[in-house]
Design a protein around this nucleic acid. Structure first.
Length: 421
RNA sequence: GUGGGCGUAGCUCAGCUUGGUAGAGCGCCGGAUUGUGGUUCCGGUGGCCGAGGGUUCGAAUCCCUCCGCCCACCCCA
């Protein structure tokens, strides 16, 4: 008998989510769905892969994301497909394709599911990762920005997260941003040589990223660089002020971070991020922003301004985990002997039908009681010959050890009261 | 793509410096207790010591190569 010498394992950067961790994932997702519902967002499910061009156009042809960090492959007919690295482009594509702009009001859509990136994995960053996100399409109002931010904070709270910080910024629009970037580039020409190697390179290739440098020695220089919030055009400044005002009205604490510059071309005006200290180098739990030109870039004939965010679910689960325990088992049934087993199977079905989680296992009583304990059962029900003859069964409360002899109706009533609280 | 750390039981790890044929705790299984769990006690199962090659009488241990995982960088969706 030959056994394979190399075990097949989950591929690099992917992982299995096992119970009881999956309970935490479901808890986070349930919290998100509840909040989405409260804000009148509705779920959209887009394909997990798309034509490569969608992401290339949406994200920017020249970015690292497109050139080397996507899961791109050739289909059998020669077309280039890509596993979605994010969902915003897909949502906008669907919005255009199905003329959702013709539907009444704004489109408020949410999604959740796996995304893919082809990078070296590290803490909180996997090749298959999960995002929960939403897009509000069809309005430029700063009130929408604030509501989206309020909603995402509500999701985090509802999911059980505490101790996070909300960071916001405005990156301007097509008018003022290029001017600011040029200004920054000029400024860097004189100071860049005093900075770290990465920054010297970025000063040319991607000046905005210099602002995000973490090298300690560079910080004094960065402090003196011009800030984007001082270079917004009138319209962008008014928008930003209105967003901040609305956040204040809503009692949402935030910090303005002029150095919060999202890397993607399509972001305009409001950008935001939530960070949490326990995450290591990848400390961002969620990011989002306004993308008023994206729909046009993807071929929309109508102006479809939007704002959205996506939560890194892997990271959120990582910091929420531990606070929640797996769902307990309501009832464990221990039948003794063959006739009791058949009888118990029917009892199990009835209790399950009434909404309880029920497990049933045969074997030596000591053995199955041990199992009941390990499974975290709230109650154990012993079904033996004595019980069947008497029509009264032994119901044991596993936490107190108390046991009483009850009829089926009494058991049902007792379980209902004990478990409904 | 680049750098660093780590691969020994299901899990967490010791053993490696100074080579002598594999350990602990937890878990799992059984017993003390023929129909009663948790605590306790006793016993047991469990390892191609990541893979391949080399040195040696002898390698988990020393050397080389490869693979995998983790962390960080680049970048960030």
């Amino acid at each position: 008998m030959d056994f394979p010498t190399t075990l097949i394992k989950a591929v690099k950067g992917t992982r299995d989510l096992l119970p009881p961790a999956t309970e935490v994932w479901n808890g986070v997702e349930a919290a998100a769905r509840a909040v989405f519902r409260a804000y009148n967002y509705h779920e959209i499910r887009t394909p997990i892969f798309e034509e490569t061009q969608l992401f290339a156009r949406g994200v920017g042809e020249e970015t690292d994301i497109v050139t080397k960090e996507m899961y791109t492959f050739e289909d059998r007919d020669g077309s280039s497909l890509t596993l979605r690295p994010e969902c915003t482009a897909s949502v906008i594509r669907a919005y255009i394709e199905h003329r959702l702009d013709q539907r009444p009001g704004m489109q408020k859509l949410y999604y959740l599911g796996p995304m893919f990136r082809r990078e070296r994995p590290q803490k909180g960053r996997y090749r298959q990762f999960y995002q929960i996100g939403a897009e509000a399409i069809g309005s430029e109002s700063p009130m929408v920005d604030a509501e989206v931010i309020e909603m995402v904070v509500e999701i985090l709270k509802r999911a059980g997260l505490a101790g996070f910080e909300l960071l916001i910024n405005s990156v301007g629009d097509r008018n003022c941003r290029p001017q600011y970037v040029e200004r920054l580039r000029q400024e860097l020409k004189s100071v860049a040589q005093g900075m770290c190697g990465d920054c010297q390179r970025r000063a040319d290739t991607n000046p905005l990223r210099v602002l995000d440098c973490k090298v300690e020695a560079d910080q004094p220089i960065i402090e003196k660089l011009p800030s984007i919030v001082d270079h917004l055009c009138d319209a962008c400044r008014a928008h930003f002020e209105a967003v901040k005002q609305s956040l204040a009205d809503r009692g949402l604490p935030y910090q303005v971070r002029p150095r919060l510059v999202r890397g993607l071309d399509y972001y305009m005006r409001t950008t935001f991020e939530v960070v949490h200290g326990s995450l290591g180098a990848q400390n961002s739990v969620l990011g989002g922003g306004r993308y008023d030109g994206l729909a046009e870039a993807l071929g929309s004939k109508v102006h479809s301004p939007g704002i959205g965010f996506s939560i890194g679910e892997d990271r959120l689960v990582m910091i929420v985990e531990g606070g929640q325990s797996p769902a307990p088992l309501d009832l464990f049934i221990a039948p003794l002997g063959e006739p009791a087993l058949r009888h118990a199977a029917l009892m199990a079905r009835d209790f399950r039908e009434s909404g309880l989680s029920v497990e049933l296992a045969e074997g030596k009583l000591k053995r199955v009681m041990e199992l009941a304990n390990k499974l975290g059962a709230r109650f154990a029900l012993i079904v033996g010959e004595n019980e069947m003859a008497a029509g009264r069964y032994a119901l044991k409360d596993m936490s107190t050890g108390e046991q009483e002899s009850l009829t089926r109706d009494e058991i049902a009533a007792k379980l209902a009261t004990a478990l409904n609280c």
